[in-house]
C-alpha cells in the first residue's frame, strides 16, 4: 500500500511540523443519511436498554421485599414473601452445563471435520446442514425429546447411576438397581434428558463459531507443519487448535448463553423442583425460563414482580456470559473486511 520509492524527492524530504489531520466533511445529503443510520442504531440500542429498564422497574417491588435473600433462598412462594433464585438459577446453570459438556466434544469434532477433513465439494452442504440444525424450531426438538429420546435415555441413566452412582452427580436417591420391576419414572424428567435435548440446539452455535475460527488458521503455518512431516492430525494439533482457541472458548460460552435461556424443551421435559438437586439423572429440575413461562399466567401482581426479578437475574447472567464470549471471539477474529 505504501510503496516507498527510495529516490523519490517527495519521500526524501520529510514534511516538518505536526501531521495534518484529515477530516472528511460530509455533504448535506450524506449527513442526513448518516443521521438516519445513527438514529436506527440508537433505536435498536434503546430497545435493548428498555428490556433491562422495564424488567428492573417491574422487579423492584419484589426485590425491595426480598432484599439479599432473593439470591440465597431456595423456594418460590412469593405470596408469603418466601422466594429466591438460589435453587432455580443453579438448576438452570446445571441444565446448560450438561448441554455444553455434551456439545463440546461433538462440536469440536464436527467443526474440525468440516474445516479440515471433509472434501471441498461437500463442505458447503455440511455448513448449511449445521445452519439447518440451528433453525429447526425448538418445539420440534422438544417433541422429539419427550416422545423419542426420554425412553431411550432412561436405560442409560439407570446404567450410569448403577455403576457410577458413587460419583455424587450420578447418584439417584431411592434407586434400587437390583429391582427388575423398578419403573423408569425415577429417571425420567431429569436434568440429564433436558440437557441432551438442549445440547442438540447449542451444537450448531458452537460448531459454526469453532469452524469459522479454525478456517482462519493461517495457510503458511499449516503448510509449515506438513513440510516438517506432520500428519493431518499433527497439523491440526499444532496449528489449527492453538489458532482456534479463542473460537473454541468463545463458541462454548455463546452456546452456554443460549442454553441458559432455553424454554420449550425444559417446559416439556422437566418436572419442577425448587431446591438444588445436583443429581442430574434424577427426576426434577428447573430453569428460570420455565418458571416464568409456567407462572406468569397464574400469579398475583407481587408474584409477577418476583418473576420479573428472576427474569432480570437471567438477563444479567446471559448478558455477562455473552459479552465475555463475544469479547473472546472478537479478539481471536481477524480481517474485518475482505479485499476483492
Amino acid at each position: 500500500m505504501t510503496t516507498v520509492v527510495p529516490d523519490s524527492p517527495v519521500v526524501q524530504k520529510a514534511p516538518s511540523g505536526p501531521r495534518r489531520r484529515i477530516r472528511p466533511v460530509p455533504v448535506p445529503s450524506d449527513r442526513a443519511f448518516l443521521g438516519l443510520t445513527r438514529f436506527s442504531g440508537l433505536l435498536v440500542l434503546g430497545v435493548f436498554a428498555a428490556i433491562g429498564l422495564f424488567l428492573s422497574i417491574k422487579a423492584f417491588p419484589a426485590i425491595r421485599v426480598a432484599k439479599f435473600s432473593f439470591l440465597t433462598t431456595q423456594a418460590w412462594q412469593p405470596d408469603i414473601h418466601h422466594f429466591g433464585i438460589a435453587g432455580i438459577l443453579t438448576l438452570t446453570i446445571l441444565i446448560a452445563l450438561v448441554a455444553v459438556v455434551i456439545a463440546i466434544p461433538v462440536s469440536l469434532g464436527l467443526s474440525l471435520y468440516i474445516s479440515e477433513v471433509a472434501p471441498q465439494r461437500t463442505k458447503r452442504t455440511l455448513v448449511s446442514l449445521v445452519d439447518l440444525m440451528a433453525a429447526v424450531p425448538s418445539v420440534v426438538y422438544g417433541l422429539w425429546a419427550l416422545y423419542f429420546l426420554q425412553g431411550k435415555v432412561i436405560g442409560v441413566s439407570r446404567w450410569l447411576s448403577t455403576w457410577f452412582g458413587w460419583i455424587p452427580v450420578f447418584k439417584v436417591n431411592g434407586a434400587h438397581p437390583n429391582n427388575p420391576l423398578e419403573s423408569g419414572s425415577l429417571y425420567s424428567a431429569s436434568t440429564f434428558i433436558a440437557g441432551i435435548a438442549v445440547s442438540l440446539m447449542v451444537i450448531p452455535i458452537l460448531t459454526s463459531v469453532m469452524r469459522e475460527s479454525f478456517s482462519q488458521a493461517p495457510l503458511g503455518e499449516r503448510e509449515g507443519a506438513y513440510a516438517l512431516g506432520a500428519t493431518r492430525w499433527g497439523m491440526i494439533r499444532s496449528v489449527v487448535l492453538p489458532f482456534g482457541k479463542g473460537g473454541i472458548i468463545g463458541g462454548t460460552m455463546l452456546g452456554l448463553g443460549r442454553a441458559l435461556g432455553e424454554t420449550i424443551v425444559v417446559i416439556l421435559i422437566i418436572s419442577p423442583v425448587f431446591t438444588i438437586n445436583t443429581h442430574i439423572l434424577q427426576a426434577g429440575g428447573n430453569s428460570v425460563s420455565f418458571l416464568i413461562a409456567n407462572l406468569v399466567g397464574e400469579s398475583s401482581t407481587f408474584g409477577i414482580s418476583a418473576l420479573m426479578a428472576a427474569g432480570l437475574a437471567l438477563f444479567a447472567l446471559t448478558l455477562i456470559v455473552n459479552f465475555s464470549a463475544s469479547a473472546v471471539v472478537a479478539r481471536s477474529r481477524s480481517g474485518a473486511e475482505s479485499d476483492g
Partner: peptide, 10 residues
Amino acid sequence: EAMTALPSIL
C-alpha cells in the same frame, strides 16, 4: 452480538 443470545422468553 450479545443480544442474539438473549433468551427468547425474555
